[in-house]
Design a protein around this nucleic acid. Structure first.
Lengths: 223, 223
DNA sequence: TCAGGTCTCAAACGTATGTTTCAAACAGAT
DNA sequence: ATCTGTTTGAAACATACGTTTGAGACCTGA
């Protein structure tokens, strides 16, 4: 073999196992046996398990962030002086995710699930790595959101962005299971694209919700 | 001591460590040393680590589900024949969570974080346990949601409920960190109650969002 | 052909985990 | 006070983990 494909085999196996089971619950031995590769190859090629985790993210996040940047470029060019709307911004993000070239039919699900895991299982090292490598498109997305919702106070916008991230990360991270449930309960087949089609209007409506707290919440009674 | 408090000490320590670090990342030795209890006590009192995890959930979920049931009873009594509105239903849930008697000032955060972990880290055994033990209040909540949003199709409602769960679980599971960030960035102090005050209108608006997909999403170009 | 670097392999290392063991300490009832 | 079942204690168990080792295979360029 001209150049070893061991690296890619390890990345493929790790990506799928991580997405299925999480990071701590996936051992190097599971990965190497699925990849049909020697155990030592991981530490030889990547140095450590943590570095492997970061490499798995880098492999799809780097092209994705480039796709995203150019989608934002297009959007801003199309809008001229007026800032893009909230829906436009959300759709730019969504389409960038969906359009990513996939290695296989499960690609987009794995992609989403890994993103969700990155948020919820963040191992410290992963969070630092992602912040260091991909803070720019993230910050740009935040700026677009800010300009698309000038009516919100900073505090309100902050929380609503967290809610959006939560709804997205959570749903996508278990999109496979949720799709199966829907298939069994209502007999409906669903694509990731269709999930996004439901999600974006939900997020946009929540983000632009009117006046807050219709009934003031009562303080908890101190026992 | 009349009856050993070892069990409670273990539960307290486990609850806090699980909330901080997740399940797989928390060892029995961490728990027993934090609880100042012998290692073997866990297996003696609970049988296994998995059973301990379930006990941690049972300790706060059982009283919570009772509180929730009576909150739903009150709500339905107050509404008479007309079904409760979406906001009313969401507030009933939120207030039940906030009103739960807390063991300490971090109680509500830990409560929320554990719920989030239950969803994202679900170990199989935990999911089965929760479904077996607490399906009734959950199903009742779903019915209330259904009656409060008759305009939605079943599929649309299904996805929007997932989005609500995601936004809630995710936000609450990292509410401590998010509150710290807000404190540092904007100098704003926040209580969990206030987070709920932001969250409920967001959820209600998203749930009742109007017509879907303002711009049809394009199919991914097959490379 | 051969030397040198790249890569693979089986095996072992040290550490950490969940669990078990069994003797000692304890409690409450007789 | 003594017995009995319950709870604790220190230690060990078996297993799994991430990582390291050193010898061998392989390819490449001279």
């Amino acid at each position: 073999m001209a150049q070893s494909d061991t690296v890619d085999r390890i990345l493929d196996a790790a990506e799928e196992l991580f997405a299925d089971r999480g990071f701590s619950e996936t051992s190097l031995r599971m990965i190497t046996s699925k990849a049909k590769v020697n155990l030592a190859a991981v530490n030889y090629h990547f140095g450590s398990k943590n570095a492997l985790i970061q490499s798995v993210f880098a492999r799809f996040l780097t092209p994705f962030s480039q796709t995203l940047e150019s989608a934002f470029d297009d959007l801003e060019a199309r809008c001229g002086d007026t800032p893009p709307t909230l829906e436009q911004t959300l759709w730019a993000l969504t389409e960038s995710a969906v359009r990513m070239p996939q290695r296989n039919e499960k690609g987009i699900s794995i992609f989403m699930r890994l993103l969700g895991l990155a948020y919820t299982q963040s191992q410290g090292h992963l969070r630092k790595f992602l912040e260091a490598e991909y803070s720019q498109p993230f910050g740009r997305f935040m700026t677009l959101l800010k300009n698309a919702t000038p009516q919100l106070t900073a505090v309100e916008r902050y929380w609503r962005i967290q809610f959006m991230l939560g709804a997205t990360a959570f749903t996508m991270s278990s999109s496979d299971a949720l799709r199966d449930i829907l298939q069994n309960k209502l007999g409906v087949e669903t694509t990731v694209q269709e999930i996004a089609g439901h999600l974006v209007p939900f997020l946009a409506a929540g983000m632009q919700a009117g006046g807050s707290t219709p009934s003031a919440i009562t303080k908890p009674s101190v026992a």
